[in-house]
């Protein structure tokens, strides 16, 4: 069953398109990573899915319903980010009680155990928590609510290394015990890629990739060696990135394609070049970097 179906989804603010003709669908009981650069439209997309904001055109269906103003979508989904607003009059313990009141699958026992593990005080107030603690508390609500659609928008903002690791582990464990559809948007692809099944990469409001994570790792490869040889090899190939890494040595990231005579890896190895795998996080950066700035931030300083 498809939990989310978007077709030609567009959202514009003051005629500026934040999401542009976005079409994709997400299957039930999968963990999808939503990645993209700052301002790519990740949060906007997630908020439309959660029914917080309205799309300008196109269609979005969550559990086969339009998400805006749908009670069923709201009851079966939760949107977790560091901006979640809770009434300042309620203590943390009471907030957990409220979550229990609203979400039918809520696991109070799990919430309590996580609450104690992360050292929260039931009498504390949400607006006085530190950044990392706020994210941790929101994450507890998100996990314990056991919503069929759980959306985490940058869930690890402010969390320290140890808590981030704990969070991913808790998420994975709870997902295995109680499968559900989870979407995580994150900048830390290296950290999340182990738990993801699919990746949805968006850039400037448009979809770039929507693939299983295993295929992302096989999507491109890095080639390093003598500049001339490399350039000859990558000619008429889809080059995502290239950089001088020393005297007469060039490193290039090329999209793999099986068409033509043998794979690019074989050709490179035959030519005596070094072939490396490309980290997913690097691949996403290469894919979303604009053509005019292929040299990266260095270009800014080189040409003035």
């Amino acid at each position: 069953m498809k939990v989310i179906e978007c077709s030609e989804l567009t959202k514009s603010y003051n005629r500026k398109k934040v999401l542009n003709q976005l079409s994709f669908s997400i299957e039930e009981n999968t963990i999808t990573g939503l990645v993209g650069r700052n301002g790519a439209g990740k949060t906007t997309l997630l908020k439309i899915i959660a029914g917080y904001i309205k799309n300008t055109s196109g269609e979005v269906r969550v559990f086969s319903e339009r998400s805006f103003n749908s009670l069923n979508v709201s009851g079966n989904s939760i949107f977790v980010d560091d901006q979640m607003s809770f009434p300042p009059a309620l203590q943390l313990g009471e907030l957990l009680g409220e979550a229990k009141r609203f979400y039918p699958n809520y696991d109070a026992n799990l919430a309590k155990r996580l609450f104690d593990y992360f050292g929260f005080d039931e009498k504390a107030y949400h607006n006085r928590l530190s950044k990392g603690k706020t994210s941790t508390f929101n994450m507890i609500i998100g996990l314990a609510s056991r919503c069929p659609l759980t959306i985490f928008d940058e869930p690890t903002t402010g969390m320290d290394e140890a808590v981030r690791k704990d969070f991913y582990r808790a998420l994975l464990k709870d997902y295995i015990a109680h499968p559900r559809t989870i979407i995580i948007s994150s900048h830390h692809v290296d950290e999340v890629e182990d738990i993801l099944e699919d990746v949805l990469l968006i850039n400037k409001g448009s979809k770039l990739l929507h693939l299983p994570i295993a295929e992302v790792k096989e999507w491109a490869c890095g080639i390093k060696g003598n500049s001339e040889t490399v350039l000859k090899l990558i000619n008429n190939k889809e080059v995502l990135y290239q950089k001088e890494v020393g005297m007469n040595t060039l490193y290039a990231v090329v999209r793999k394609d099986s068409s033509g005579s043998g794979s690019i890896e074989e050709q490179a190895q035959l030519a005596g070049l070094e072939v490396t795998a490309v980290r997913s996080s690097d691949l996403f950066v290469h894919l979303t970097t604009e053509a005019k700035s292929k040299g990266g931030i260095d270009d800014v300083f080189n040409n003035y």
């Binding site: 029914g51 917080y52 103003n69 749908s70 009670l71 809770f86 009141r101 609203f102 979400y103």
Partner: peptide, 8 residues
């Protein structure tokens, strides 16, 4: 506050 939990 309402939209943190279930509502339309």
């Amino acid at each position: 506050y309402d939209f943190t939990f279930v509502t339309n």
